[in-house]
């Protein structure tokens, strides 16, 4: 139980740091008059903050009730989601490099940031998909 609480605090700190850096990115894009990037990043920041708050609130309540936040089912979902997201990320990065000529990346680090963001989003989507799936045993990795 204590380990669960520590893990949750760690997730809260990392999540807050990621969202804070995203906010800095929004501000720097705004200062450079990159309106589309500002709006896009702003929306992602708001959605991420809301999702993080909901996630933390639900899990803290579970811990308060004396329940665990990780069990064999969540571990299975995480494993499947990681594996699927990894495979999808390869395709995503291939597509990103294929269209790199037509996407106006500022520099290599921005392209890398998009690739990492894409991987995170893919993992989130995979997790949401498999969290609702009934027959986890029939999933082929």
């Amino acid at each position: 139980m204590k380990k669960d609480k520590k893990n949750l605090i760690l997730i809260a700190v990392i999540g807050a740091a990621v969202i804070f850096s995203f906010c800095l990115y929004v501000m720097s894009s705004f200062m450079q008059d990159q309106i589309h990037i500002t709006i896009g990043s702003g929306i992602i920041s708001v959605i991420s903050t809301i999702l993080l708050i909901i996630f933390l609130k639900n899990n803290f309540l579970e811990i308060k009730k004396g329940l665990v936040i990780k069990d064999e089912r969540t571990n299975k979902i995480m494993m499947i989601a990681f594996a699927k997201a990894y495979l999808l990320s390869i395709w995503f990065i291939l597509l990103l490099s294929f269209f790199s000529e037509s996407i106006p990346f500022r520099d290599v680090s921005q392209a890398l940031n998009y690739a990492i963001l894409g991987m995170v989003v893919l993992f989130g989507l995979c997790w949401l998909w498999y969290n609702r799936k009934e027959d986890l045993d029939k999933v082929m990795i």
Binding site: E62, K65, G66, L67, V68, I69, K70, D71, E72, R73, T74, E134
Partner: peptide, 12 residues
């Protein structure tokens, strides 16, 4: 709580 799993797991 008794089984040491999440409530969702029991529901599933």
């Amino acid at each position: 709580e008794k089984a040491g799993v999440r409530r969702e797991t029991i529901s599933f």
